[in-house]
Design a protein around this nucleic acid. Sequence first.
DNA 1: TTTGGATACCTAAAAATCTTAGGTATATTG
DNA 2: CAATATACCTAAGATTTTTAGGTATCCAAA
Lengths: 114, 114
Amino acid sequence: MFSKELLKGTLKTIVLKLLADKGRMYGYEITQYVKMQSEGRLVLTEGALYPTLHKLEKEGLVRAERQQVGKRMRKYYHLTLAGEKASNSRMAEFEEFLQVMHLIIHPKPQGDGS
Amino acid sequence: MFSKELLKGTLKTIVLKLLADKGRMYGYEITQYVKMQSEGRLVLTEGALYPTLHKLEKEGLVRAERQQVGKRMRKYYHLTLAGEKASNSRMAEFEEFLQVMHLIIHPKPQGDGS
DNA sequence: TTTGGATACCTAAAAATCTTAGGTATATTG
DNA sequence: CAATATACCTAAGATTTTTAGGTATCCAAA
């Protein structure tokens, strides 16, 4: 698995995008889904995920609904209208980030006179 | 310009890659090069860059040489052997990160029975 | 000539984010 | 019945970055 350093700053983006795609997910489900989809290469820690979900809720981008399953509680999250907008703009920013990284990592050769 | 949140964790990678490509650069030059190459979309702050360069030096990945230009001092940085290896492995990690993000953002549809 | 902007380095406090390392409880499987 | 998986949570510490300075030289324009 790659260094987690690169993940910094992308966690919110991932969560917002997944909720946009799936409609509703609960925290543990997100960790499992990401692990599965990335073929084990990306493992979200709960210590990062849960505070992020709470923060998104406080910011009004997601809303939570508790649901009882057997005797256990699940907290399903879904996007608010503001959350949908945030998800879209985050994804647009991510695309731009990729473009910029590409420009820096694969530079157009500057005129070098040769 | 996109939110800097996405940049978190990529600064070292960028610096190592640029030094690998260019051979030697000084701090201010790095900020200007990145700004130019990204068409103004990415601006590295000096408060982040200089401490990062110092840290890379302490880790033995880069070495600095002071050079007088007029009455002003420049500190040119270049990769050590360990730095070259770090640059390569960082870039490999970054590629893997991109792949993983792609898998999460553009998921292969799971059998949904429809 | 002096003022402002560019060049060129630096640091420290604060904010933001994540890891580590727990805690609690239920469900399932060997 | 013990271990693993499911499912939530928090807090201390580490790391990284922003913000907001500081110092000094160079050059061009007013």
